[in-house]
Design a binder for these strands. Structure first.
Length: 267
DNA sequence: GCGACAG
DNA sequence: ATCTTGTCGC
């Protein structure tokens, strides 16, 4: 039984986003953001969740912090989590954000000195049905500068994967080339970025406390491959964590060769 | 009404 | 997100 959630649930979620939306800041708020080469920026974070093929209840949430501009991993946190909310386009935050907030809180408590100065988030920020994607959601809840990095275009406000869009993608010749994602409403919701020699661009949008211009430049400067290193490392580590877990011994609760020393608690 | 729809 | 091997190229 994997049907779409009741409209009432989605409505409640939408209201929750509307409540939080007032907290989004779309301008640069840190000094390093105003420096030509981001002088003063030393740590960039990345978050991601990886799922198990046949299991829609568990996933691995990971948070990594990389040095900047060296892009070496300084901190890693992978943890199995019990996902409850289903995946519904436009409501990704409700599925993934709780575990990411927990990871950020753990980091603040255990290694406060490694707190990232900016976080790259898998998904969109302002480029969203209600102008409040997962990158905004996480940004408001943690008050960390956040940037939305999506691998596919979310079709919203007239934006579509149509022939015009494909033509615009073809126009991105060199890495670093971009074109604005302007909705029917007239506002620029994000930017398509050719982050490397891949014909497939990244879709960058403001999450929290970062301007779109800074977001694009920063993501570009974190790319060794198409996916910016912080997100790529979080992705690699979370799927590796799951791969190992699937090779580990299976625990069977009520059967098995040896189950005799168990002191059964009967009423 | 139907289809499209980040991860 | 995940299912999936080799393979062509720098």
């Amino acid at each position: 039984m994997t049907g779409p959630p009741p409209a009432a649930i989605l409505s409640r979620w939408a209201r929750e986003q509307a409540r939080l939306k007032g907290g989004v800041v779309r301008e640069d708020t840190e000094e390093w953001q105003k420096e030509p080469s981001f002088a003063g920026l030393q740590r960039v974070g990345g978050v991601d969740l990886s799922y198990i093929k046949g299991d829609d209840s568990r996933a691995c949430a990971s948070l990594v912090v990389l040095s900047y501009p060296g892009l070496e991993v300084l901190y890693e946190d992978c943890r199995m989590v019990a996902v409850s909310a289903p995946y519904v386009a436009g409501f990704l935050a409700f599925r993934e954000v709780p575990f990411l907030v927990e990871a950020v809180q753990r980091l603040q408590q255990e290694e406060p000195g490694l707190k990232p100065q900016v976080l790259l988030v898998d998904g969109n920020g302002l480029l969203h049905h209600r102008g409040f994607g997962v990158a905004c959601h996480l940004g408001v809840l943690t008050d960390l500068p956040c940037i939305g990095v999506a691998k596919n275009l979310l079709q919203v406000d007239g934006l579509a994967r149509d022939e015009l869009h494909r033509e615009q993608i073809r126009s991105l010749q060199r890495e670093g080339d971009t074109f604005p994602l302007t909705g029917t409403s007239g506002s620029v919701l994000g930017m398509a970025l050719r982050s490397c020699n891949s014909s497939k661009p990244l879709y960058i949008s403001v999450g929290h406390r970062v301007s779109l211009e800074t977001a694009v430049r920063l993501v570009q400067s974190c790319c060794r491959y198409r996916i910016p290193e912080p997100i790529r490392q979080a992705d690699i580590r979370s799927r590796e964590y799951i791969r190992k877990q699937m090779c580990s011994p299976v625990k069977v609760p009520s059967s098995g060769p040896e189950r005799e020393e168990k002191a059964e608690v009967d009423d």
